[in-house]
């Protein structure tokens, strides 16, 4: 089976994640879309690992997971704080940086 199958699959997942990030205004959903994109990359890395018989790219997947977990911990904390302040998770409300 050519590697192209997995290339296309992970790009499709990645682009779905991007579409989601563009379409939705809910911060949590956008966050989830980012996780989806990370997973698409992970999938590609594992496919390459299989192709080259090399464990290194699986290790990269670990590191991506670690970073993703850290990101989720901090990000969700930020979102919770934001919700506490403005009682909404709509990213369009958060436009104070403009001023």
């Amino acid at each position: 089976m050519p590697i192209q199958y997995y290339l296309f699959l992970s790009f499709a997942l990645f682009c779905i994640g991007i579409m989601g990030a563009l379409m939705r205004r809910n911060a949590i959903i956008i966050f989830m879309c980012i996780e989806l994109m990370l997973n698409a990359v992970n999938l590609l890395l594992v496919a390459f690992s299989k192709m080259y018989n090399d464990a290194s790219s699986q290790i990269f997947v670990f590191f991506i997971m670690v970073v993703a977990a850290a990101e989720v911990a901090v990000g969700l904390a930020v979102i919770v704080m934001m919700y506490r302040r403005v009682h909404s998770v709509d990213i369009n409300i958060l436009n104070r940086l403009k001023h």
Binding site: P2, Q4, C15, M19, K50, N53, A55
Partner: peptide, 30 residues
């Protein structure tokens, strides 16, 4: 825009020289 990105990447990869083959036999890498 997401679709355009996908199309661009697809079009780009169509001519790319990545042509590895995933063997079906299991290996011990994982």
């Amino acid at each position: 825009s997401g679709g355009i990105l996908f199309l661009v990447i697809l079009a780009a990869l169509r001519d790319s020289k990545i042509n590895g083959v995933l063997e079906k036999s299991s290996n011990s890498v994982g």
